[in-house]
Simulated assay, not measured.
Amino acid sequence: MTQKKLPEWVPSSGLQLHLTGIHFDAIRLRGVRGEAVVHHLSALTDGDPGPVVREIAGARWTYLLLEPGAGQDFDWPPGAKCFGPAVRDQYVGIPAAHGNTYPLSWRCGAPEDGDFVDAELLHGVVTAQLVSEK
């Protein structure tokens, strides 16, 4: 059994804050909306939407991690906050692949090196969800 190669920005234990726009951009969604988006992305990607960090306490934020710089290519609708190189001093907590990482966890397992959420597909899902809520 081969172990997947984790990106350098995934800590070996616990949690670590990372400045967005360097290793990844992030799109943040709150609560049920975030879970619904991940559910739809999973259906469209055969269960592999890419790296998704979820907060299991508080506001229950979902962070979908994109390639660095990819988030700024889209006009994100209200409720979807883009953290990337154009936003100054924004950090996202990254959990380790295993162990106690409360209150953060990987929604679909820790990513392999080079894995990211498809920004165009994510934008389409978030936009379609917003239209269906109206």
Rank of each mutant, 00 (worst) to 15 (best):
A57T: 13
A110S: 08
V37I: 13
Q90H: 10
G79D: 01
N100W: 03
E120T: 15
A128Y: 00
V37G: 02
D73K: 14
S42Q: 10
A119V: 15
A70W: 07
T20H: 02
A110T: 01
G93R: 08
D89T: 08
D48M: 13
G93D: 06
L6C: 01
W76N: 04
P103K: 06
G47K: 14
R33L: 08
F24E: 02
N100V: 09
P77C: 05
R54F: 05
G109L: 03
E67Q: 15
P51N: 12
R54I: 11
K134W: 13
A110L: 06
T2C: 12
P95N: 00
L6Q: 00
P95M: 00
V92G: 01
T2A: 15
V125Q: 00
I22W: 09
V37C: 05
V126A: 02
N100F: 07
R60E: 14
V32I: 07
R88C: 13
V32F: 04
L64G: 08
H23M: 14
Y102L: 09
V53R: 12
V126F: 01
E35M: 09
D75N: 12
D75Y: 08
G99P: 07
D46N: 15
G47I: 15
G31F: 04
D89Q: 09
D115G: 02
T62M: 03
E112P: 01
A119K: 14
V126N: 01
E35H: 09
A128C: 02
A36H: 14
D118T: 12
D115S: 11
D25W: 04
L6H: 01
P95I: 02
G58M: 11
M1C: 10
T101Q: 00
D118G: 13
H40G: 09
D75T: 13
A128I: 00
G109H: 00
L41R: 08
G84W: 03
V87F: 06
F74D: 03
D46A: 15
H98S: 12
T62K: 02
A59W: 08
F74G: 03
P68Q: 02
V52T: 10
S132N: 10
L121K: 05
D115P: 00
V38D: 07
Q72M: 15
K5G: 08
P49N: 09
L65I: 11
D113I: 03
H98E: 14
P11E: 03
S132W: 09
G109W: 00
A97R: 10
T62P: 00
P11Q: 04
P11H: 05
P11F: 07
D113C: 05
P78T: 05
T20G: 01
D118A: 14
A110K: 01
A59M: 13
G14A: 03
K5S: 15
V37P: 01
P95C: 02
T45M: 13
G47R: 13
G79R: 00
A43H: 10
T2P: 14
G109S: 02
L121T: 07
V53G: 11
L41P: 06
W61T: 11
V117F: 05
R33D: 05
G99D: 04
V126Q: 02
L64I: 11
R54A: 06
L130T: 11
H39M: 13
L65F: 05
Q90C: 11
H39V: 11
T20F: 01
M1N: 07
G84Q: 08
A97F: 06
R28P: 04
A43E: 13
